[in-house]
């Protein structure tokens, strides 16, 4: 392809070669290039500096830059594997790869476990789950009495915490989500299969030959 010369993609901080990123992920080279169009779009919504900051990430999710959200913030932090406080293109592609319909189930299970292990102790604790339930209630304006929340937590930990030590480890989480596959629905984005159709403009900026894509 290469219809139009690239307009300085390599000037983007953390820009990585699409061929290199495709080799590391489920994405084809064309899909990585289409993701770059999405990346640019999100990363230029507040400050156009070639990276995605947390504000831009939350804005993309909520269309509201003032909103703070525990879950969006947690996902951002997990995408930010190098703990730089911003996402570069490589971070973005490698993290989204886990959400691809063809990504390994095991990767989705581990990512979802980390998502809910808010304090990174290697366990999902009851207090963390309660905090997330309260955050959900705040976000949705759904109202639940404290005793209802405790009943939900009791039921959840009875099912998930099989050794009944008050916390859910990765092995327990693994068994729990296999019995409740709907919990992994958030970990798969069917849209990623059609990313080149969603961002066809990648063709105009492609730097690779069709044969390589």
């Amino acid at each position: 392809m290469g219809c139009v010369p690239s307009k300085g993609r390599r000037q983007f901080p953390g820009y990585e070669d699409p061929v290199f990123l495709a080799a590391q992920t489920t994405f084809s080279v064309s899909e990585v290039e289409a993701l770059f169009e999405l990346f640019k779009s999100i990363g230029s919504s507040v400050v156009d500096e070639g990276i995605i900051n947390k504000e831009e990430f939350v804005l993309a999710l909520f269309k509201n830059r003032k909103k703070e959200n525990l879950f969006a913030s947690r996902i951002f932090d997990l995408f930010d594997v190098k703990h730089k406080g911003v996402l570069d293109f490589g971070d973005f592609v490698r993290a989204l790869h886990i959400f691809h319909p063809s990504a390994p189930l095991e990767d989705k299970i581990v990512f979802s476990f980390k998502l809910y292990d808010l304090d990174n102790t290697g366990f999902i604790e009851r207090q963390e789950v309660k905090l997330m339930l309260l955050a959900l209630l705040g976000e949705s304006e759904m109202k639940l009495a404290d005793e209802t929340i405790e009943a939900i937590l009791d039921k959840t930990f009875l099912e998930a915490d099989t050794n009944q030590d008050g916390k859910i480890d990765l092995s327990e989480w693994h068994s729990f989500v296999l019995k409740n596959p709907s919990l992994l629905r958030i970990m798969t984005l069917p849209y990623l299969r059609d990313i080149t159709t969603a961002f066809p403009s990648f063709v105009f900026y492609s730097e690779v030959d069709e044969a390589a894509a």
Binding site: S45, A60, L133, E139, S140, E159
Partner: peptide
């Protein structure tokens, strides 16, 4: 009936966990 659901089913309803929205930009 929220009480019939487990906590994670409820939590996964959060808009902040729905990355589909990223593609709407």
């Amino acid at each position: 009936q929220p009480v019939a659901m487990n906590a994670f089913e409820l939590i996964s309803m959060s808009k902040g966990l729905n990355l589909e929205n990223l593609f709407g930009t």
